[in-house]
Design a protein around this nucleic acid. Structure first.
Lengths: 163, 163
DNA sequence: GCCCACTTCTTGAAGGTTAAACTAGATGGG
DNA sequence: CCCATCTAGTTTAACCTTCAAGAAGTGGGC
């Protein structure tokens, strides 16, 4: 970082500040809503959602971590907690003896079914009810671009001389 | 929540998922970058930035918490840590004996000065270098709308019969 | 002047997250 | 077959966040 930094323009600064405030406030809001209504933080809820949508309601740990964009370590802790709650169960993977499947239990599914409407309502109220369909489209496109740029890269992409 | 839930449309679902992924990945990315280069998480860095921009580089605890969108409790812990680092100092507020000012020290300012370029570069690379100026404008507008809707409301707004 | 309700800020405990180290099993070249 | 190397997942300890409770100060109504 020896070259002169390119500071943010006025518009970029305003956007960045708004981004930080909105994302902080929303994540807090969702955490509070779900902690109150479902007894777990937002990230944990997201794990149950992913499992509920997977074939046979089960996923390999690494795959779940990849989809949810969290580390395997964090997932290990999270699943341990969800298992204590009886909402997820661990199961040996038949094809790879190192592997574990996280399986959504019926109880876990019931919790999800019960709390999903309230959660959707909260998300709507915070985001979709305030934006025009056009803005929803713009936001989606922008977020896809950002997410794509932040995916853990193929190692070789950082080492072009190896390609 | 007794009425039939209005689920998200296809477009809304895609946008929501992209939003979750992008914000999760970006926050992680910034935390890692700042932990590595500045020895503190992103939120703590943001506190130093706010202080650096305040008159006399100091702010009342409550005001700083309000600006940074975090709880006072969290701020207390954070400032305690930053104080141990020598980057912030606490000071009694002259006009209100309950109050404390958080003051950015010269050391704290130096850390900021040293790490700001790298941080801006990271933000640019993750967001602004990937978006058109038009998209930056759209994102800013959308985030302002969301943040506004999530501000802790004036109590009376929830109690119209008291107005 | 005296209450009482409110604000400011801190604390402690419980729970969540991170980074690094570790166990166990898979994999592929020689 | 053997071994180095890689991958899957867990664990530990340090750190961070949250919630509830509490100490201390303020200020309006009487």
């Amino acid at each position: 970082m020896t070259t002169a930094p390119r500071w943010l323009s006025e518009q970029e600064q305003r956007t960045w500040r708004a981004y930080l405030q909105a994302t902080t406030l929303l994540e807090d809001h969702l955490d509070r809503q779900l902690q109150r209504d479902a007894g777990m933080p937002h990230v944990y809820y997201g794990l149950l959602v992913q499992l509920s949508q997977a074939p046979e309601r089960r996923l390999r740990m690494t795959e779940l971590a990849r989809i949810a964009k969290i580390t395997r370590s964090r997932l290990s802790h999270a699943v341990a907690r969800l298992e204590r709650n009886g909402w997820v169960r661990r199961e040996d993977c038949p094809s790879d003896r190192r592997g574990q499947n996280a399986v959504l239990t019926d109880e876990g599914y019931a919790v999800l079914k019960q709390t999903a409407p309230g959660h959707v309502a909260t998300v709507r109220q915070a985001m979709f009810d305030r934006l025009t369909p056009e803005q929803v489209g713009q936001l989606g496109e922008i977020m896809r671009i950002m997410a794509e740029g932040l995916q853990p890269q193929d190692t070789d992409a950082d080492l072009p001389w190896l390609r």
